[in-house]
Amino acid sequence: MTNILKRAKENLRTIRTAGKLGWAMESNWTDPFLFAIYSIVRPLASSLILVVMYYVVTRGKTGMDLFAYIYVGNAFFMYVINVLFGVSWVIHEDRDHYQMIRYIYISPIRMYYYLFGRGIAKMVLTTVAVIITMAFGMLVLKIPVNLLAINYPLLLFSVAAGIFIITCLGILLAGVSMVTAHHSYALTEGMAGLFYLACGAIYPIDILPVWLQYLSKALPLTYWLELVRRSILGKSLSPTLSGYSDFQLILIMAATTLILALFSHWVYRSIEYIARKYGKIDQLTSY
């Protein structure tokens, strides 16, 4: 028991320390004003692009329900992009840019906690960006969200679960980054793109071809986005998913997340072994 407590304490310390490092990097802007602009305006701008595209494509004919569906999904998808990069990019940064990975790697910390810690700054900033994007949507675009009707416990739980899920995916990619060179950027980008298409970020998964729906249903992010929408909008547009109760969705999300976590762990450990075998842990990839 004391051993478990001791470990938990060590891991928390790792998260805290890595978190500070991540924050120092994230906020390494000489001008805090620029920093604020960058972290707020950029996500807002990307949402606006989507809005414009939506209006151009539909000529404003489709109802508010679908628009709200898209807007919320798109806003929360920022977590996927930012946290995925925040966690997996650490390997590349530490190895090639700072060239510190060998010292991090041979220290007694557990890498998973270190990677998670490094991603925290991104998680916090993304949360701010999501809140601003949502506020903008409600105030300016009149997205029908009733602040009093939001299921806050469910929302908080979903966001926490989402961060966990994305961290697992980030760890998987971090593993892959240990043996790939620069392409890991494209890989992360590609993976985020795949999730964007497959997890119902901007349209219900029901319109996907059946074989792609199998993938959607295997990915915990699909249930995560559905739960987020339910907690905020109170309803769902996906015939497939609306058949499940909140609790059932949580269970399915938990089960798929567990599988994902085990898979990520396996991938990370296997590739780490290969990297150590071939002397790749601290071998620079960017010449």
Binding site: R16, L21, N28, S107
Partner: peptide
């Protein structure tokens, strides 16, 4: 990490 000071760096590793 270039963004940390000398003391911060030493502190960070002591924490690890």
């Amino acid at each position: 990490y270039g963004i940390l000071t000398v003391r911060e760096t030493l502190w960070m590793f002591s924490q690890f």
